[in-house]
Design a binder for these strands. Structure first.
Length: 572
RNA sequence: GUCUUGGUAGCUCAGCUGGUAGAGCAAUUGACUCUUAAUCAAUGGGUCCAGGGUUCGAAUCCCUGCCAGGACACCA
């Protein structure tokens, strides 16, 4: 077992002392709460007859003790409020243990308590609760990072990203703006959900474990089902299932879908992430653009009270209507090249002229996409619908009504990043099968993201799917934009981290089994020996001296160890 | 995957050309009845990420590894 730090040991001692005083540090009974910190701070200054009998619970975030009176900052789920605790108020009788011992000595920053009392304003003008009674609700055994703040300046911020993501609970306790980000994330999702529900679209759930990972071009995670003894894939998208449901007759279906892609991890990619996909029958991609505009405007409005949002240093207006421009037009605008009617070789030459890296596996679509990605994407700051993509980039999308080399597809770009992707969905089963087969050829050419053929999906289309428009939007990216976060890890509660390394430590029992008396185990650890192998490699004379010195230094009341003993441990 | 920066007390960080580790907050003890980054006094607290090397001597220099951040590449 790892050694406890001094502060942890002190808290455990306090815990034991609380128990000795007959106080349960983890009581079972509910604690009646009748108000919220934020409500008090908002309403009391306007009407000071309110809150004269409050009961509130939360975590102690700071303490200022002045003899027989103290101030505590109590944090509940809604904010912080100051408590004024006076000894003779919570201990009206002779016995002052609750204040002098329990509150002043045995409670710490991080402990959770409940108090009752009345609200007043201090001489310094701070709305506070005058405490009449105090109940210990949960003792905290680890010290929290202490973050202080004055006039908007934060001191000693808890900012190490590794600690923040690994121990998100600590991050949430001490960084209120982090708690707020996740409230906003949920608000965004709720806004979308109501928007869809109002129009009668049905929220559904489709399989995460799939036999054929379809609906996107991406590398999947593979897992194994024991009873069936077969490989299964974690979904990379839910598109093909939702379209089966449109075949089944629903007017519109949507899903907030956790997807898994076995690709790189960086500032904008996590192996599991959330997409919202929606499919609506009898619509096309023009209708969908308007739908998306309305949805985004509404989200911004709900969240910020305006459609103008600061995103990564730009003021973005989600008010719409957004610019709509065909991909080839944008390329022409940025590069001067008209790629619309070029063949593969001409495209390669153009890439070369523009200094864009290409490789042999890239077909026409990927070449055009490379030019677009390099030259156009970064310029699309205000929301822009990029429309009419080349056909071999979009195997699930309907051909353009005016040009059969293009598709009725749009992507929405904001701040140079793709935010949403939508089609007039391909519902011609024969064309769909051919497109899948083309993907197979790309795959054979070496494109490891080309799609699998899903024959059941083709079969579904053969029964007839109404003209349908579908749209997918990256929820994590949307939340990043709406909350002005640069990092996907800041909008995911628990981003994937590599496991913490566990130092291979020998347990105390192992040392005892090895012949070391239990009372000496902490001492030899103190001497820097934490494994049996370290012990065996130790110099007996040095260890003998060290242990003698430590015995004195640690003021241990145990007999001195003999050198023969040490030799027996080492030679065992 | 490549390059790059970092890992020192519970937290935030200093630590120069190598000489046995320091501050603030937190903690402990004490003073103080309206404080608010409370204040004052005293005290304790470290496997300087891990492992190797150079050296009389390494937190510091070198190598390897682990973890994290950033940039680039890859990724609809």
């Amino acid at each position: 077992m790892a050694e406890l730090t001094e502060q942890e040991q002190i808290r455990r001692n306090s815990l034991a002392e609380l128990k000795n005083l007959g106080i349960n540090p983890y009581p079972a009974a509910l604690y009646e709460v009748n108000c919220k910190s934020a409500e008090i701070l908002e309403q009391f200054p306007k009407d000071n007859t309110l809150f004269q009998n409050v009961s509130i619970a939360g975590r102690i975030m700071s303490r200022r003790i002045m003899g027989a009176a103290s101030f505590v900052e109590l944090q509940d789920s809604y904010g912080r409020i100051q408590l004024y605790i006076k000894r003779d108020e919570i201990c009206p009788d002779e016995d002052k243990t609750l204040y002098n011992t329990v509150f002043k000595r045995l409670l710490d920053i991080g402990d959770i308590i409940g108090v009752t009392g009345y609200v007043f304003v201090t001489q310094m003008g701070e709305t506070s609760i005058h405490v009449k009674s105090l109940t210990v609700l949960s003792k905290s055994l680890r010290p929290l990072p202490i973050v202080k703040e004055k006039d908007g300046v934060v001191y000693d911020a808890f900012s190490d990203p590794e600690l923040r993501y690994r121990q998100r609970y600590v991050d949430l306790i001490v960084n209120p703006q982090v708690r707020e980000t996740f409230v906003q994330r949920t608000k965004i999702i709720n806004t979308m959900r109501s928007f869809f529900n109002e129009q009668g679209y049905l929220e559904v759930e489709t399989p995460v474990l799939q036999v054929i990972p379809g609906g996107a071009a991406a590398r999947p995670f593979i897992t194994h089902h024991n009873a069936l003894d077969m490989e299964l894939y974690l979904r990379i998208a839910d598109e093909l299932y939702l379209k089966r449901l449109i075949v089944g007759g629903y007017a519109g279906v949507y899903e907030f879908s956790r997807n898994f892609r076995n690709e790189g991890i960086d500032r904008t990619h996590n192996p599991e992430f959330t997409c919202m996909e929606i499919y609506v029958a009898y619509k096309d991609y023009n209708w969908m653009m308007t739908f998306v505009e309305t949805m985004l405007g509404r989200i911004a409005q709900e969240l910020h009270g305006t459609t103008k949002v600061n995103v990564w240093g730009h003021e973005i207006d989600f008010g719409g209507p957004f610019r709509r421009a065909p991909m080839c037009e944008l390329i022409k605008e940025q590069t001067g090249y008209d790629v619309e009617n070029m063949d593969e070789q001409q495209l390669r030459d153009t890439c070369k002229a523009l200094n864009i890296e290409v490789d042999e596996t890239m077909g026409k679509g990927k070449l055009i996409d490379a030019i677009f990605g390099e030259k156009c994407e970064p310029t699309l700051i205000q929301p822009t619908f990029v429309t009419d993509y080349p056909i071999d980039m979009s195997p699930l999308c309907k051909r353009h009504r005016d040009n059969s080399n293009l598709t009725e597809r749009f992507e929405l770009f904001v701040c140079g990043k793709e935010l949403a992707n939508a089609y007039s969905e391909l519902n011609d089963p024969i064309d769909q099968l051919e497109r899948f087969q083309e993907q197979l050829r790309l795959s054979e050419k070496g494109d490891d993201e080309a799609m699998f053929i899903d024959m059941d999906f083709v079969r579904a289309l053969e029964y007839g799917m109404p003209p349908t428009s579908g749209m997918g939007i990256g929820i994590d990216r949307l939340v990043m934009m709406m909350t002005d976060e640069q990092n996907i890890q800041d909008v995911l509660l628990f981003p994937l981290m590599k496991p913490e390394k566990k130092a291979a430590v020998t347990t105390d029992e192992d040392f005892v089994k090895h012949g070391v008396p239990a009372e000496w185990v902490p001492v030899i650890r103190k001497a820097g020996i934490n494994t049996i192998s370290q012990l065996k490699a130790a110099n007996p004379n040095k260890l003998f001296n060290d242990l003698g010195g430590l015995r004195k230094k640690m003021k241990l009341d145990i007999p001195a160890v003999r050198k023969e003993q040490i030799e027996s441990w080492i030679n065992k």
